[in-house]
Design a protein around this nucleic acid. Structure first.
Lengths: 195, 195
DNA sequence: TTTGCCTTTGAACGAGCGTTCAATTAGCGT
DNA sequence: ACGCTAATTGAACGCTCGTTCAAAGGCAAA
């Protein structure tokens, strides 16, 4: 049985993941050494291997956890009108991603550093998230509320547009998050509603 | 005077840049060794240093060249109506980027591997390109053709949406490039025109 | 106080890294 | 045919990499 009181494991474990997340986001997976992560945590490199079998798995767990939290955090409300479901999605997506810039960054930048198996697992989670939006767009198209030539393309277009916020938005900048969300919602709504 | 006929320099030089571009796009700058590039070209690693002072400059030149070609390739026609100028921009952006997936990829993924000076230079070029679009949006807003709360945000939103095409579009896929452009133009137009 | 396990250290491993450079090759101008 | 020089080789430099592991440390239970 693992020790609880006085165990460093419960402290060091999260610190390892936090340091890896920050450093991967800042410098890129390939450019961050295990020694650099260990130094950030305050231990020697060898100690990291109590918390991850290897560097690859460390990255994979960060990406997987992020995607799972993303999926768990959004719940569609199919009783609403499609336009309101879409509004909720836009609001959620921008807020959730603005809260987690590092996780979002590595989720887009470090996919190629995953082994094929790990990449497949993360891709499947991402596709699940995209499907949530596509379902909303399809509902609106079926109801005649939306005018969309191809819902798959519209899904990817909207997500790309919304996720782009993360490349420039900073808390305390010229615009508040609410202002940003308002404008993006205006653009997204107009881009899909029937003309 | 450099030799021309029979000189390997004129052959090896471009081959080095092409190999570096492909490998950087495929595996990431940090994960590609000079020996890997040399092997792709068919020379030893030392020979690369006839064509670049170092690995960093090799990356910088690829990004710089790409941005300069992008700026040189698009010319706005201010005599057209704003909506037509915007249509031309959307068409150009998607086509130009779809033609150069590797260049676009490294231009977004490898910015952080540039030294601060080199990063600044590439960023300045990128901002120039963004300004081209913002000018168009501003003209349309001034003329009352567009309804845009903040032209800077709209600029970034549109570019993010359009550049997102590169993450999934493949020649020979379900949709032709013309079909893709048509739908993106429809969405972009609706997202900015007066409602 | 002793026992026993969890945690960490610190050294070591083989490998690969970017870069340099003297020596060699090979082809053009003469 | 020869000399010149651009182009390339191949070895070497010092360094960092991910990972392993025997040894040591430290805390809880007995």
């Amino acid at each position: 049985m693992a020790r609880t009181t006085g165990s460093h494991s419960d402290i060091t474990g999260p610190k390892v993941r936090e340091a890896a997340l920050r450093l991967f986001a800042q410098n890129g997976f390939a450019a961050v050494s295990m020694r650099a992560i260990a130094s950030e945590v305050g231990v020697q490199a060898g100690a990291l291997y109590n918390y991850t079998p290897d560097k690859q798995t460390l990255l994979f767990n960060l990406l997987c956890t992020h995607m799972e939290q993303l999926l768990a955090a959004f719940s569609d409300d199919t009783s609403l009108a499609p336009v309101d479901r879409l509004r909720r999605f836009v609001d959620f997506h921008i807020r959730f991603h603005a809260d987690r810039p590092d996780e979002v960054f590595i989720s887009y930048m470090e996919l190629r550093n995953l082994t094929p198996d790990n990449f497949g697992a993360v891709e499947a989670l991402r596709r699940q998230y995209e499907d949530r939006l596509e379902t909303i767009l399809q509902s609106g198209a079926d109801a005649g509320d939306f005018d969309i030539a191809d819902t798959k393309i519209a899904t990817l277009a909207v997500i790309a547009m919304l996720t782009g916020v993360n490349t420039w938005f900073r808390v305390g900048g010229r615009l508040s998050l609410d202002q940003v969300i308002a404008q993006y919602w205006d653009m997204v709504r107009k881009s899909v509603v029937s003309g």
